[in-house]
Simulated assay, not measured.
Amino acid sequence: MTRIVAVTACPSGVAHTYMAAEAIDSAAKAKGWTCDVETQGSIGIENELSASAIEAADVVILTKDIDIKNSERFEGKTIVRIGVSDAVKRAAAVMDKIDAHLAKATA
């Protein structure tokens, strides 16, 4: 089973951070994947990813609109960087691309 972890953040740290988190989580689960999402919003880091969740992840999704705090945690992992608006509007398409990438990597 594919495991995804993600960190979402936007410049204002309000609505789009949480909308992106929900969209990524829903799109991953629609594929039958597990997904953990950390948000870095206006009230700080919520649902912080555990070291074990990061270690087990096949892919890390990071939004790129602002710097992600503690991003060194993901060194050595396959990282996909997307805009917050892409996460909100195109999460299913992003998951399809990840799926195709993983299929190639294991072929």
Results as ranks from 00 to 15, higher is better:
residue 63 T to Y: 05
residue 57 A to Q: 12
residue 47 N to Y: 00
residue 55 E to I: 00
residue 37 V to N: 02
residue 45 I to F: 00
residue 46 E to M: 03
residue 32 G to Y: 03
residue 42 S to N: 10
residue 56 A to D: 13
residue 59 V to S: 08
residue 58 D to N: 15
residue 40 Q to E: 04
residue 24 I to Y: 08
residue 71 S to Y: 03
residue 52 S to Q: 14
residue 60 V to K: 06
residue 40 Q to R: 08
residue 43 I to K: 06
residue 38 E to I: 09
residue 22 E to D: 15
residue 23 A to S: 15
residue 68 I to K: 01
residue 46 E to F: 02
residue 30 A to I: 09
residue 52 S to T: 13
residue 23 A to V: 11
residue 25 D to V: 04
residue 34 T to A: 13
residue 51 A to V: 06
residue 61 I to K: 10
residue 45 I to G: 01
residue 27 A to Y: 13
residue 43 I to R: 08
residue 22 E to H: 13
residue 25 D to S: 15
residue 23 A to P: 03
residue 50 S to W: 01
residue 30 A to R: 12
residue 35 C to G: 08
residue 25 D to F: 02
residue 43 I to S: 11
residue 71 S to E: 15
residue 52 S to N: 09
residue 52 S to R: 07
residue 23 A to Q: 09
residue 69 K to R: 14
residue 23 A to E: 10
residue 44 G to Y: 06
residue 30 A to Y: 04
residue 26 S to D: 15
residue 51 A to K: 05
residue 52 S to H: 03
residue 39 T to L: 03
residue 47 N to V: 02
residue 41 G to V: 04
residue 28 A to P: 12
residue 65 D to C: 13
residue 64 K to A: 14
residue 53 A to N: 06
residue 61 I to Y: 09
residue 56 A to C: 00
residue 26 S to A: 15
residue 20 A to I: 08
residue 33 W to I: 07
residue 35 C to R: 07
residue 44 G to T: 01
residue 51 A to N: 12
residue 64 K to W: 00
residue 19 M to C: 04
residue 69 K to N: 12
residue 35 C to M: 12
residue 49 L to T: 01
residue 48 E to A: 14
residue 24 I to R: 02
residue 56 A to P: 03
residue 59 V to Y: 08
residue 32 G to R: 06
residue 66 I to N: 04
residue 54 I to A: 02
residue 41 G to Q: 00
residue 31 K to N: 13
residue 46 E to H: 02
residue 23 A to M: 03
residue 30 A to V: 01
residue 36 D to N: 14
residue 44 G to D: 02
residue 40 Q to P: 04
residue 42 S to K: 00
residue 25 D to A: 15
residue 33 W to C: 04
residue 58 D to S: 12
residue 71 S to P: 01
residue 58 D to P: 11
residue 66 I to R: 10
residue 48 E to H: 04
residue 68 I to H: 05
residue 56 A to S: 13
residue 54 I to K: 09
residue 28 A to D: 12
residue 41 G to C: 03
residue 31 K to L: 05
residue 19 M to F: 15
residue 48 E to G: 06
residue 50 S to L: 10
residue 55 E to K: 15
residue 57 A to K: 10
residue 56 A to N: 12
residue 27 A to G: 10
residue 26 S to L: 14
residue 38 E to Y: 02
residue 45 I to E: 08
residue 59 V to N: 09
residue 64 K to P: 00
residue 70 N to V: 00
residue 19 M to Y: 13
residue 55 E to L: 10
residue 58 D to T: 05
residue 65 D to G: 04
residue 49 L to E: 03
residue 71 S to C: 01
residue 36 D to G: 07
residue 54 I to E: 01
residue 69 K to G: 10
residue 32 G to W: 03
residue 36 D to M: 12
residue 21 A to L: 09
residue 19 M to G: 07
residue 50 S to G: 11
residue 66 I to A: 00
residue 71 S to D: 13
residue 66 I to L: 10
residue 63 T to F: 03
residue 43 I to Y: 09
residue 55 E to G: 03
residue 35 C to V: 14
residue 38 E to W: 03
residue 37 V to D: 04
residue 22 E to P: 01
residue 54 I to Y: 01
residue 44 G to P: 03
